[in-house]
Design a protein around this nucleic acid. Structure first.
Length: 114
DNA sequence: AAAATGACATGAG
DNA sequence: ACTCATGCCATTT
């Protein structure tokens, strides 16, 4: 992975999230690691905050924190929107947490970064 | 221009 | 196992 500029950093993040397969999830830390951890996991989350303005739509509901917790659920339309989206993909969500999150985890560095 | 904020992660106590 | 403290850096007030 070459050096990433700020603008490309956002694009890289969105691109990675878009490549997350349906029914799988990833974490901020893994995405941050995939881009070289230049900005840190926080910037990944910050980029997600702006994901509403970009297109195509980014499946932000597939991005969780390291605990598999739906941290960004509050930023969706309704409080349970994120959980519903995940359930719609065959993921069991319980108490704002993804069941078998470890098994469903999709590591971008392993798929594209390597 | 400076300070505060944030969809996190990691390490130490 | 749980809580507190620190690093990270762009965006906003």
């Amino acid at each position: 992975m070459p050096v990433i500029d700020r603008k490309d950093l956002y694009e890289a993040i969105y691109d990675i999230v878009r490549q997350v397969p349906r029914g799988r999830v990833t974490t901020y830390g893994h995405i941050a690691a995939a881009i070289g951890m230049k900005s840190g996991a926080r910037m990944v989350g910050y980029a997600m905050n702006h994901c509403h303005r970009i297109v195509p739509e980014v499946p932000a509901h597939r991005v969780l924190n390291r605990d598999g917790l739906l941290t960004g659920k509050a930023h969706f339309g309704t409080n349970d929107e994120m959980a519903i989206l995940l359930r719609n993909e065959g993921i069991n969500v319980t108490d704002d947490r993804v069941a078998d999150f470890r098994a469903l985890l999709w590591d971008p560095a392993r798929e594209i970064g390597i």
